[in-house]
């Protein structure tokens, strides 16, 4: 990722700022300009909404063949998490052993290092999930 591309989405990556459709109250993350359900009815009515960060695991995997930037974390767990706001996110699940992961596992967000541009480049931070104990 380039610097502006990362920087532009800091609010989403650090704070989980999504949007709520003013028409149907559905929540979206990342933010959308248009609600896919309400379409034109939603234009101008999408308002910012900070997610609580809590949710439960819908499905998951443990990656053994990563993209090169993630080798130091390998093997690592990815999950699709359904947030309390009924919106889903993809993220790493950390601080848990793979055999302890199961559907329905309750998780919370935490902010971790996602990667870096290069050893001399900027560091990317963003959300990952940890189990709620």
């Amino acid at each position: 990722m380039t610097i502006p591309r990362f920087w532009r989405e800091i609010k989403q990556r650090y704070k989980g700022i999504g949007v709520e459709c003013g028409n149907c109250q559905r929540v979206y993350f990342p933010p959308r300009e248009v609600c896919p359900h309400c379409r034109r009815e939603s234009i101008g009515k999408m308002k910012e909404r900070e997610l609580t960060g809590k949710g439960k695991v819908i499905t998951y995997t443990e990656i053994h063949e990563p993209m090169s930037d993630f080798k130091m974390m390998t093997p690592y767990i990815m999950a699709i998490v359904e947030m309390d706001e009924d919106v889903r996110m993809t993220g790493q699940l950390v601080d848990i052993e793979y055999e302890d992961v199961e559907p329905g596992l309750e998780v919370d967000v935490t902010i971790r290092r996602l990667g870096e541009e290069s050893p001399s480049g900027i560091i990317y931070y963003g959300y990952k999930f940890v189990p709620i104990r």
Binding site: P30, I63, Y76, M89, T90, G115, G126
Partner: peptide, 15 residues
């Protein structure tokens, strides 16, 4: 919103 977080193409199908 997927790959940047570490999701490989394989992993999305795995899920």
């Amino acid at each position: 919103w997927e790959s940047v977080f570490g999701a490989t193409f394989d992993s999305l199908y795995a899920m």
